[in-house]
Design a protein around this nucleic acid. Structure first.
Length: 433
RNA sequence: GGCGCUAUCGUCUAGCCUGAUCUAGGACGUCACCCUCUCACGGUGAAGACACGGGUUUAAAUCCCGUUAGCGCUACCA
């Protein structure tokens, strides 16, 4: 335990929070919690042109939804301009930096001292660089805003950050920042650089890979538990074969030592599977709560009771919440029409037509369809009486109710649909309505 | 181009540090079978990898060198 652990997630509000950012935030959070430390936030809005409030709002929303709460109030870099400028002028006064005329103002640049510099990355081990290969570093842009490096160093010191856990894309930037820590006379934090998340084709994540913002996964019906579990396993793993983790288990088991060094491809299929696993492991009332939260549409006509039964009926076959509505479409609306090839196959079978007619009569004798067992008993017994296999009537009935060849168990389904709807749909298939 | 990082099944990974227990383990996906009214769930099983080339060693997925490939940095973006 290192009680003084302080880590941070420092997004820039120049775009939506994507899965790479989520993973970085998650690892920071996990490390803080596992060490009894603090997880902090900082808004890196030092790019005046590209920063937007809507992105900031979305990032904050996403972090909250995931359960990655920050422990202290955060600040904006744009509110600390004088601090960055003052510190830069001090380097100027010491002759360590110089001014350069640029568009619309004067920039301040840091003279890179040529030397060898190395550090121990917590993921990669010893890393060495030759700074004579670096160009001088802009500290303050000509618009008066700090560059990423300058603000980052000053802020990490101000926030007393003990460990910087960030993407591998910053590995080559780290020596520059270390140089800055040195001239300021400060001790640099420890660094852990995470492998990058690539698209399914192995190329860097971009618009080409479709929607990769956290918000879009949320809209597709992924739950926080599924996202976190999947992302935790991208670039991190333990001995043993456990795949399913709760948030608490992740906190307990997380260690920087076990972070992978290689870039990982994002696999939508495995995420979906993982999400489905979490949907199944939720207790029933939690599951129902997620469903009604996801489908919080006051205009829907279906009764809460029916909605609940439907959600439960489809639970084992959905991987995301949005699949529920797609798969259960025939619960909400009567099928418009039946695929004609399958319908013809059934209706050209004369005995089957008679059996369906007869089934309607038998079914009508039941007072209601509340008990799936009763419908099943009735159906199987009548099929027996005709000397046919139960499935030979079950499949046509399923088709009549759903216009599909796959569905949950027929009798459970009938119970949800209700007697009236079932009878009318069978008649509809027969062309009687 | 220069510099840096990385390299185990199609994908995510365990094993590598501390060489022999690896005829390389698990998961997703795929396929087959079981369960079964279909599908899904669940269960069982199959196919499937140490990038390549040199070393070191009695012994290398594990250590060293090189090649190749991928990614990153090389911005008054972060």
């Amino acid at each position: 335990m290192e009680p003084s652990v302080r880590v941070r997630f420092a997004p820039s509000p120049t775009g939506y929070l994507h899965i790479g950012g989520v993973r970085t935030a998650l690892f920071n959070f996990l490390y803080a919690r596992s060490q009894g430390g603090k997880f902090l936030l900082r808004m890196e809005d030092s790019d005046r042109a590209r920063s937007e409030k809507k992105y900031e709002t979305e990032i904050l929303e996403s972090l909250k939804w995931l359960g990655l709460a920050w422990d202290e109030p955060f600040f904006y870099q744009s509110a600390r301009l004088e601090i960055y400028q003052k510190a830069a002028r001090e380097l100027l006064a010491k002759g360590l930096a110089y001014e350069e005329k640029g568009e619309g103002g004067i920039a301040i640049k840091f003279k890179i001292p040529p030397r060898k510099i190395g550090f121990t990355d917590l993921v990669h081990g010893e890393v060495q660089f030759d700074t004579s290969l670096f160009g001088d570093l802009v500290l303050i842009k000509s618009d008066g805003f700090p560059t990423y490096h300058w603000a980052c160093v000053l802020d990490d010191h101000e926030m007393r950050i003990s460990h910087v856990i960030r993407g591998d894309d910053h590995l080559s930037n780290t020596p520059r920042q270390q140089l800055l820590f040195e001239v300021l006379g400060w001790k640099a934090p420890k660094y852990a650089h995470l492998p990058l998340i690539l698209g399914g084709d192995g190329t860097p994540l971009s618009k080409r890979h479709g929607a990769v913002s956290l918000a879009s996964f949320r809209e597709q019906g992924f739950v926080p538990e599924g996202m976190i579990n999947y992302l935790a396993l991208l670039g991190w793993g333990v001995e043993g074969n456990q795949e399913f983790y709760t948030f608490e288990e992740l906190i307990k088991k997380f260690s920087i030592k076990r972070i992978t060094k290689t870039n990982a491809r994002f696999d939508y299929e495995k995420l979906s599977w993982m999400n489905g696993q979490h949907l199944k492991k939720l207790n029933e009332s939690d599951y129902l709560a997620r469903v009604s939260e996801f489908y919080a549409d006051p205009t829907r006509k279906i009764s809460p009771e029916k909605w609940k039964k439907t959600a439960l009926l489809f639970r084992s076959r959905i991987r995301t919440l949005s699949e529920l509505k797609e798969q259960a479409c025939y619960i909400f609306e009567e099928p418009e029409n039946y695929p004609s090839d399958i319908r013809n196959d059934f209706l050209q079978n004369k005995p089957l037509k008679r059996h369906l007619e007869a089934w309607i009569e038998e079914a009508d004798k039941l007072p209601n369809f509340l008990q799936p067992e009763e419908i099943e008993k009735m159906t199987r017994e009548t099929a027996n009486g005709w000397g046919i296999e139960a499935k030979d009537i079950i499949h046509p009935l399923r088709f009549a109710l759903t216009a599909k060849t796959v569905s949950p168990g027929l009798f459970e389904l009938m119970s949800v649909l209700g007697k009236e709807a079932c009878l009318s749909r069978v008649k509809k298939l027969l062309g009687r309505s």
